[in-house]
Each structure stands twice: as structure tokens, then as C-alpha cells.
Amino acid sequence: MTTMVQESDVRRHELAGFLRSRRERITPEQVGLPRGRRRRTPGLRREEVAHLATVGVTWYTWLEQARDIQVSPQVLDAIARALLLDPSERTHLFALAGATDPAPGTPCPTITPSLRQMLVQLEPIPACIMNSRYDILAYNRTYGRLFCDLDSLPPEDRNCMIMAFTNDDWRAAVVDLADANRMMAAKFRASMAEHLAEPAWKALLGRLERSSPAFREVWARHEVVGQSGRTKLIRNAHVGLLHLEHNNLWLGPAAGPRLVSYTPLDVESRERLEKLQAFAPAEA
């Protein structure tokens, strides 16, 4: 009995810390609220989150204070939307609360219809939107077939770090895999420096360490590299070798979501991307 009580207490405090960290990262402008002149709180205030989620301020405050209260899946859903949680964060929220997500396939609220339309307009250039944790939040048809068949994977596996170290199709497509993965691990370490205490990051790191000896080896080197574009050779299973330039375009703060695109560097690669677009299904 004591063990169950202790576990429940730990979960409540983890949930409280997680909610605070998500609230503090969101600016008023991101959710259509005025900043005001005397704002001292980093990110949103508790009452602003409560207003956006249409829940009581006192009740939401108790959640962040780790009070022992009951919370319904519907209210958690509203809070997840108010805090602009991405799919991994949303899953973590419901896990901490010990609740079943009523809408597990809910699209990430940071991916607006206009951003999805932009991805379509970029075709045949492969493009996606990912967060700093390498979760792929949205992608166009050519990106969906660039390394592997993304549509065939569950959402929780659509993470570039996971695929780079565990997905056979993705790994076969990357020319000079060892160097590419070493660079990815170094970029991931640099990004994680600002998120060391966050559960979703720790969970991803734990999964990588458990599932990939190659990741454990490169992670032990403690190498750090900043995000930057670079030339890449990709051996696509459907159209052959592609010579592409990888580019990042941040959609907000540098630590947030970014648009990733792969621009062809020669005529042959452009033609092969057009073939790949025709090969891919109408909807990604």
C-alpha cells in the first residue's frame, strides 16, 4: 500500500513539473494573448492556461501544486491543446495522469493548415516539420518516401533519432551511415542541454540507449555539434542515388519546431525526386 501511495505521489509531482515547464515555454503571442507591460512570468500565467483550457484557475493551480485531485481525460485533452503539446508530450501527459487519451491521433496544434499546405507546395522537394527532439510532426509525400515508408510506422516511431539507429530501411538509405549518425547524436546532445530534466527527452534517450549499441557508442563520446545544413547523399530504394542539400528553417525560437528540406543539387537528383513524388501516394 505504501509503495502505491509513493508511486502516486511521484506521478503527481512529475505531472506538476511537466505542466509548469510546458506553460513557461509558451509566449502569449503564440496563443493570441496580449503580452502586457508588467509581465514577469516566463511564458503563460496559470490563469491564462486555465482560460485557454476552459477550466477553473484554482483547479489548474492545484494540478501544478501536485494536489491529490481527480482529472478527467477530457480536461487533460483541453490542457494538452492549450499548452500546444506535440504528440510525444501529449502521450507523456496522459501517462503521468494515469488516464487514457480520448483522441490519441490528435494532430499537433503547432502544425497549422497553412504549414501543411506549404509542405505540399514544396513538392517534389522533400520537406518535414520536426521539433528539437527530432519528432517528425508533419511531412509531404516525397519526404514520406525519402528514407523509408513513414506512413507505415506508428507515430511514436516517427523520430529521426530512433529511425537512424534502429530502422533498417532508413539506415540503408543513408550513405556513410556511421558519420551521419555520429553527427546526429552530437546535434541531439547539443539540443538536449536545455531539456535535461524533461521526461520526454529522458524517455527518448533511454529508448535509444536500450535499443542501439551503436548509439551507446557514439553517445559516450560526448561530442556536440550545432544545427546546420549540409550536403547529403541518400540512396533511395525507389529512384536511386540523390545528391541533396539539407536545410533548416526555424518556425519560431531556435529551440522549437523547424522546417527541414532537402534541395536537389543537380538535374539528375531533381528528376529522381519528381519520380519519387509520382511514386508516393496522394496523401502523406
Rank of each mutant, 00 (worst) to 15 (best):
R45E: 06
L259K: 00
A284Y: 05
A200Q: 12
R145C: 05
I234K: 02
M163A: 08
A197F: 13
R133E: 04
A220I: 09
A138C: 02
E47F: 10
A254H: 10
S152A: 15
K187W: 07
P213H: 03
A200Y: 02
L205S: 05
A278K: 10
S8P: 11
A97D: 06
P154N: 05
E123C: 00
A280H: 04
N236E: 05
A16D: 04
R133V: 06
L33N: 00
D151W: 04
H238G: 05
L251R: 00
Q117N: 02
G240K: 07
H243T: 07
A99I: 09
G229F: 10
F147V: 06
L19P: 00
D77M: 07
E194W: 15
H51R: 13
E217S: 14
R216M: 09
D9Y: 09
M161E: 03
A203P: 03
L242Q: 03
P253D: 14
R221C: 07
P28M: 10
V10L: 14
P42G: 05
E123K: 00
E29K: 11
P155K: 03
E89W: 02
S261T: 14
A172V: 04
N248Y: 15
C160V: 11
L146S: 03
F18E: 01
P257T: 03
I79Y: 00
N159V: 05
T110I: 11
W59K: 08
R37E: 14
S114P: 00
T166I: 12
D135M: 04
V218P: 01
T231C: 10
D77K: 12
A280V: 04
L19F: 06
S88I: 07
D168I: 13
G36L: 08
P42Q: 08
L146G: 04
A178D: 15
G252D: 08
H238Y: 13
T263W: 12
S212D: 08
D86Y: 01
W62Y: 12
D157V: 07
